[in-house]
């Protein structure tokens, strides 16, 4: 298979010692196996995330995303922009759509960008894509299954898609209410997807986990409870906010509700790295607070020939 190249927008949470640094580690390992070259957008900035609107307003928020798009055009011309974070993807894609739809918004954005010494030659040819889109559309399930050397046999996994990888844009060919791609990915990695998992697109509270912790934790409780109800040993997600919210508040939820939650929450790229024969470290499993012991055990086993 020929090498595939993309302009890469990693986002704040993927930085070293940031909340999704282990996601990044596993993405790098997964891309190495699939021969994907990620050209990081030099000096990229924050997308404004889902909470930036309140103080940032409309144009400043689009300017932030436009700076990344302009830098990508300049340094990685012609390459699709790929984001691993749901919010980064959403923010950049939303700006891309607004600028393509409104000449005035585009003109205003360009005027602001000039202050940063940048311009955009906006033809709208470059797509803003999430990593899972790249996997599904540019590779496809059959191709993704080929490098599997350690099928994740006997691991029952609830595919928690969440919100922003799924709505409002979503993945082509998938429904908003019951997207199946995460289950399919899980299955081709040799694990057992929990297909009846009914909270797969429930909101975890997003940024409001910080500002409205009780309301958000009530959501998170539903998300975890349903995973247990259907026999899952692990939750997998494509979103850094989902991952963090569903993993790190389990202790607080247990205290408040008297539950005994202790369920690992992993990224799809962690499953793939282990199935592709990577070590626990290469899969960033040392970054999970609730350790994914089943995956660690599989990663420690020698590859069957």
């Amino acid at each position: 298979m020929a090498k595939k190249e993309y302009s890469f927008y990693p986002g704040c949470s993927s930085e070293r010692k940031a909340s999704a640094s282990n996601y990044m580690v596993s993405v790098e390992s997964m891309c190495k196996t699939l021969d994907i070259k990620l050209n990081e957008i030099p000096d990229w900035n924050c997308c404004g995330a889902s909470i930036g609107y309140a103080e940032g307003g409309e144009l400043p928020r689009h300017a932030m995303n436009a700076r990344n798009i302009a830098l990508s055009e300049k340094h990685n011309p012609g390459q699709d922009i790929v984001a691993t974070c749901a919010a980064c993807w959403l923010g950049a894609k939303e700006t891309h759509e607004r600028l393509s739809a409104s000449e005035q918004m585009l003109a205003d954005t360009r005027e602001a960008l000039k202050e940063a010494g940048l311009d955009m030659d906006y033809k709208g040819e470059v797509e803003i894509r999430h990593m899972v889109e790249v996997l599904i559309e540019d590779f496809g399930y059959d191709q993704l299954a080929k490098p599997v050397v350690k099928p994740l046999e006997g691991v029952k996994i609830a595919g928690y898609v969440g919100c922003q990888t799924n709505r409002p844009f979503g993945v082509v060919g998938e429904s908003f209410e019951n997207p199946k791609y995460l289950d399919k990915l899980t299955e081709i990695m040799g694990a057992e997807p929990v297909e009846k998992y009914d909270q797969k697109v429930t909101c975890c509270g997003g940024a409001l986990a910080f500002s409205e912790p009780e309301k958000s934790q009530a959501q998170i409780k539903k998300i975890i409870e349903s995973a247990y109800d259907f026999g899952a040993e692990m939750i997998v997600t494509p979103c850094p906010v989902c991952q963090m919210n569903v993993e790190v508040y389990q202790g607080q939820i247990n205290k408040k509700y008297g539950t005994k939650f202790h369920i690992p929450v992993t990224y799809y790229s962690q499953l793939m790295t282990v199935a592709y024969g990577g070590s626990a470290k290469e899969a960033g499993l040392d970054g999970n607070i609730v350790r994914a012991t089943k995956l660690e055990e599989i990663a420690a086993k020698p590859v069957k020939r």
Binding site: C46, A54, A207
Partner: peptide
Amino acid sequence: NPTRRFAKLFWENIIKGGRVNELKLS
């Protein structure tokens, strides 16, 4: 309103250096 206050804090945090500083934000 906690979300209004958090949102303001968040925007101020990101525009300072261009990226989120998670420790300062929390």
